[in-house]
Design a protein around this nucleic acid. Structure first.
Length: 185
DNA sequence: GACCGGATCCGT
DNA sequence: CGGATCCGGTCT
């Protein structure tokens, strides 16, 4: 495995890291073997001074990983049936995270991972995957830089966030232009 | 201990 | 547009 993303990649401003995650690859492993991979094609940023961020009102058992070092996973359960996957950003002490909203899965239907709940369902990500150090080469969940040429168009579009009531107008969603795997019809 | 809304998805 | 379905946060 090569091009593992370093902690220094994640420990920067959330708004800088978010668009740079597009095109990177999530790798899920089980017993040292690669189980599933997906290319990140849509993300959303949540920052420490953001009313929609789970950490906006301070540390709780659920969100505590967001206050730690960057590069860790933050997985939470929502609407009684879905999980959502984030990667923690910013240096220790400053909460921040990037929600992964859609993945391009080769040899799969465009819609199997076209939403934050759907991609966790497809990858079988649950709260067991919370607080994993994704910068550790031995972690079951890591992120690597994409190194083949399957992405045809890598232009990035910035847009308003989706599905939240607070601060929904913040233009903190990014996706790959014309990519058929992004969320929303 | 109780209440209630939610970073979603799907079928109508 | 509403229903599914349950947890975490907040208040009592």
């Amino acid at each position: 495995m090569t091009k593992l993303l370093k902690r220094s990649f994640f420990e920067r401003s959330t708004l800088d890291v978010a668009p740079e995650l597009l095109g990177k690859v999530i790798v899920l492993r089980q017993s040292k073997k690669i189980k599933k991979t997906g290319i990140i094609v849509e993300v959303e940023a949540y920052t420490h001074d953001d009313p929609a961020c789970h950490a906006a009102r301070g540390k709780t058992p659920r969100n505590e990983v967001m206050f730690g070092p960057g590069g860790y996973s933050y997985v939470y359960f929502i609407y009684g049936m879905y999980h959502c996957l984030n990667f923690v950003t910013e240096r220790e002490g400053i909460p921040g995270a990037i929600l992964i909203r859609a993945l391009e899965i080769s040899d799969e239907n465009e819609r199997v991972a076209s939403g934050p709940g759907k991609l966790c369902r497809y990858l079988q990500i649950t709260k067991k995957h919370n607080k994993l150090d994704c910068c550790d080469i031995d972690s079951p969940l890591i992120v690597t830089a994409y190194n083949s040429n399957k992405l045809k168009d890598t232009s990035i579009i910035q847009a308003k966030r989706i599905g939240i009531s607070k601060a929904a107008h913040y233009p903190w969603r990014w996706y790959i232009k014309d990519n058929p795997y992004i969320s929303k019809k």
